[in-house]
Write a protein that binds this DNA or RNA. Structure first.
Ligand SMILES: [Zn+2]
Ligand SMILES: [Zn+2]
Length: 351
DNA sequence: TAGCTCGGAAGTTAAACAGA
DNA sequence: CTGTTTAACTTCCGAGCTAC
């Protein structure tokens, strides 16, 4: 155990989760010369906070990134690379991302995803849905009681209505301009209260992590990105999450919870009105035609094996076509580290 | 104990590939 | 030309060291 960090300045966007979930380490695009030499955390201001604290304002500067050396030819021999199962849809291997075919929600004809038992569960028992899912800062209650067993195979317990999360969309009224939900909306599965509590706990935690992003939301303008056409280029400076900063997070986030039912497959089980409104598809379409991988246009980062995670700037499929979004997607695992769900946040939307 | 050093894990990004 | 892969490159966590 170490004593304490001497220079405990606010480390740019530290996750700080109290519940043990390891959040992604955030880092600035460029550290100043002094912080770099010290291997210390820097920030985006100049002089940076650490230099100011240490009286090094005059030497706090940036040096350009080193020119990358040419890569040696790959392809000399095959590296096995077992690719462990993560539950995360690997679009590179399964299906091509290109092609706007799924933009118009065509009925699914391929080998239908296995329908888990939880979809046959009893209809939700909604007491009184909140008039407006007012997303203030702490919309959900955090569960502190025991969380084991975390997940059961089936969802049979009565559903507990929680602020901002809905399993019934009969009351959903689309805003003008969108043409979603016509008539019957299917009843979604009913997660157990234990499951829901844990999910809510996870959502709260994710929101905490997202707040850490605010420190990164300054400096670079949205115009840096070129997302017109087919979704931007991977080398576009605006495409990198570290360069994409100019937005302030909106108060009400679109949240959805997807159940992982197998490799490259997941099914929407929960979302809030904001999410439905944003996508503009009937729930049946969402459930039957979309997995996370199909919903997200630019999903290359899914397939990476180095643990890279969202938040990312990306594009999603909506009834109005592709929309630029800034979103996170986080796996929710049980105590055996099996990915059971994904929680998908959409933080920002730009058409 | 405060402050400095630095190995290396974690995160970023641009060269090289691949395919239409 | 677009999108993907991946190795070069960067940041900074945190353990160890030194000075007081
Ligand atoms: Zn600095
Ligand atoms: Zn500095």
């Amino acid at each position: 155990m170490k004593a304490s960090e001497p220079t405990t300045f606010e480390p740019v966007g530290v996750p700080a989760t109290a519940s043990g979930h390891v959040a992604k380490r955030l880092q600035v695009p460029r550290a100043c010369t002094n912080c770099r030499k010290m291997h210390a955390g820097c920030d985006t201001t100049r002089p940076c906070k650490r230099c100011k604290q240490n009286g090094l304002e005059s030497t706090c500067s940036d040096i350009p990134r080193k020119k990358r050396a040419s890569r040696k030819k790959q392809k000399d021999e095959d590296q096995p690379e077992p690719e462990p199962f993560t539950g995360i849809p690997s679009t590179s291997s399964s299906q091509p991302t290109s092609g706007p075919s799924y933009v118009e929600a065509v009925p699914i004809t391929e080998p239908v995803r296995p329908r888990p038992v939880w979809e046959n569960a009893a209809p939700p028992n909604l007491s009184s849905p909140p008039a407006h899912p007012t997303h203030t800062e702490q919309p959900f209650e955090t569960v502190t009681s025991s969380m084991s067993p975390l997940f059961s195979n089936d969802f049979n317990l009565p559903y507990q209505q929680q602020d901002g999360l809905f399993t019934d969309y009969n009351d959903y009224v689309p805003p003008p301009g969108l043409t979603p939900s016509s008539g019957n909306t299917p009843t979604l599965g009913t997660p157990s209260s234990q499951d829901m509590n844990f999910l809510i706990h996870q959502v709260n935690e994710l929101r905490e992590n997202n707040k850490a992003l605010e420190s990164k939301l300054s400096g670079v303008s949205y115009e840096l990105a070129d997302l017109k056409g087919k979704g931007g280029k991977s080398n576009d400076p605006g495409y990198s999450s570290s360069n994409w900063h100019s937005f302030q997070p909106q108060q009400d986030l679109a949240i959805s919870v997807w159940k992982n039912v197998g490799y490259s497959s997941n099914v929407l089980v929960e979302c809030n009105n904001k999410f439905v409104e944003l996508l503009g598809f009937p729930m049946e379409t969402l459930r039957n035609n979309f997995s996370c991988a199909k919903l997200i246009k630019r999903d290359s980062d899914y397939s990476r094996s180095n643990g890279r995670e969202w938040p990312k700037r990306t594009q999603i499929v909506t009834a109005e076509g592709l929309k630029d979004v800034f979103m996170t997607i986080n796996p929710v695992s049980d105590q055996n580290s099996i990915v059971k769900y994904y929680v998908l946040h959409i933080l920002e939307v730009h058409s």
